[in-house]
Structures are given as C-alpha cells and as structure tokens.
Simulated assay, not measured.
Amino acid sequence: GESGYVASEGFPNLYPPNKECIWTITVPEGQTVSLSFRVFDLELHPSCRYDALEVFAGSGTSGQRLGRFCGTFRPAPLVAPGNQVTLRMTADEGTGGRGFLLWYSGRATSGTDTPSVPCPKQCRRTGTLQSNFCASDLVVTATVKSMVRGPGEGLTVTVSLIGAYKTGGLDLPSPPTDTPLKFYVPCRPCPLMKKGLNYLIMGQVDENRGPIIPSDSFVVQHRPSQDQILTNLSKRKCSSQPRQAAESQA
C-alpha cells in the first residue's frame, strides 16, 4: 500500500523472546519508502547483540542494510532507495521491551490521511521527565482550548502555549505566550486531557501531520515548579543516542 503502520508482535505490550520476525513493505512503482518511528523500545546493547531491528533495502535481507537499531531512542526517519524495504526483528531468550511502532509511506500524505493506530487498552507512560525530554521532538507547556474529534479516529487538540522548551523545528515565537498550536492525538482518550487545564506536553513532530501526541507521551498537568527543571533540561545535551552506536556497527 501507499502508507500504513507496522508494529512488532504484541505491541504495545512486551514482545515475545526467541523470535525472528520479517516484514516486507512495498509501495507503488516509482515511489520510495519512507519510515518514521513513533515508538521504539528494544533491549539495549552497544552493538545490538541481543535484540535488534534491521532495515534492508529491497525485498529480503540480502540487500543493502540501511540500519541496525536497539535501545529506547527512536531512530531517525529513513528513506529507502526504492519502492521496497524489509524489516527484520530478532529477540533473544531474555526479557525485552515493548518493541516498535512505525509509519511508512510511499509519498507525502495529506493532513486528512489518518489510518487507524494500534491503541493500548490502558493509558500509561514510562520513563522519567528527563528521559522523555530527550526522546521528544516537542516540549511545551500549554492550556487546552478545544478538543475536536477527527480526522479519522483521533482527536485534534488546540492549545494556547505558555512556554516552549523544545520546538521540534516548528517556527514558534520567543516567548511563545498565547501562541495557538494544534496537536493530533491518534489514540482517543490517551493521553487523558481536559479542556481548560494546563499541561506539560512532550510530543513528536510528524513530517506530514505536524505535532502529534502518541498514546504513551509524557503528558502531565503543568505546575510552575516544573518550569525551572525544563529550562535546565533545555540547556543540557542529551546523552548520545544508542542508534548512533548501532549505526557505526552497520
């Protein structure tokens, strides 16, 4: 197909041990495959020795390897040279993580293209404020102004910004006070938000749909005491991403 989601077995719960799973993605002729990771949580090892996701150009695992990934940091978006790409995920006998969720597309999709998303049965978030800060594209504090159903099965949440600590490449004024911003929430009602309340929102920026808040995003009610912590985090350098070490082994 031209676009869709691919998730590891069992997602969003833990993936099973002792497994090798292979997916081949094919988009129409004349297009290239673009991969954008939404969630990534595999057992970490400097060379991805235990659990790993490999991406190969073409059909099968004999083509050019585009990357080998593990850990909890989302790999950067990938674009394959042709209209096919193969994913191979391997897991050893040990305990792993939640696996991965990625969006593939063969062309730029419109803002109204919103396929169904594997949503968790219970809302939950993992990690600390600091770990989520580093893993997020966009970190803001804001007041929820409206919540409207759609497009698709999700929600469009309009907020009024209070502060911005990571912009995800968006052109936001500084300071961003009262600037309106729209988020797409694929899984209703995760995370739980209410109109009129202030929140600390850690989300992602999708190249096609703009700001999004995945179901496991770090979203909590905003307290003024968080502002200094966020300011300090914005000045620090996040530790090197495991994927960079993994790619050096590719």
Rank of each mutant, 00 (worst) to 15 (best):
F218P: 02
S174T: 12
F218K: 08
L102K: 02
L200F: 12
T167A: 14
S34P: 04
G154I: 13
K145N: 14
R243I: 06
C48H: 02
Q244M: 13
P81W: 04
V117I: 14
R74Q: 06
E29L: 15
K182H: 05
L87T: 03
P75N: 05
A135C: 10
T72H: 06
T90K: 05
E29F: 12
L155P: 00
G30N: 10
Q130A: 15
R107Q: 08
S3G: 04
D41A: 09
T112G: 03
L101E: 03
R188D: 15
S234I: 13
T32D: 01
I212W: 11
G154K: 14
R88V: 00
S34F: 05
R243K: 10
P28W: 05
F183T: 00
F69C: 01
F40S: 04
F183E: 06
P186T: 07
T179R: 08
N132W: 14
D51V: 03
P16R: 02
Q228H: 12
F133L: 12
Q84T: 00
L170Y: 11
K145S: 13
A164Y: 10
P17H: 07
G111W: 05
Y165G: 08
G67Y: 07
V219N: 05
L161S: 08
F40I: 04
R188H: 13
C187T: 05
T143D: 12
V205D: 07
F73D: 01
Y104K: 05
D227L: 07
A246F: 01
I213C: 10
Y199A: 11
V219R: 08
S240K: 13
K121P: 08
D92P: 01
A250S: 11
T109I: 15
S240I: 12
D216N: 12
Y184M: 07
D227M: 11
K182Q: 11
S174E: 11
K182V: 04
R98H: 05
R74E: 01
S215N: 11
R236F: 07
S225L: 14
L102P: 02
L172I: 10
G82R: 02
Y15E: 01
P12H: 06
D216G: 02
L35G: 04
S215M: 13
L192W: 12
G127W: 06
A135D: 15
P214R: 12
F56M: 04
Q64E: 14
G150C: 13
T128E: 06
D227E: 15
P77V: 06
Y104W: 05
S234V: 15
M202I: 11
C187H: 07
R107K: 15
G63R: 04
G168I: 08
T109C: 09
A91V: 03
L66Q: 06
S215A: 15
C48S: 01
C190Q: 09
S59G: 02
G60Y: 00
E29R: 14
P81V: 00
L101Q: 00
G111F: 12
L66Y: 02
S174M: 10
A7F: 02
R125C: 01
S174H: 13
Q221C: 07
A142D: 11
L161G: 06
Y50I: 01
G10M: 04
L197P: 07
S136I: 11
I213K: 10
L200V: 10
G30D: 09
K121L: 13
G82S: 03
H222V: 02
R124A: 11
C187G: 07
D227R: 14
S215F: 15
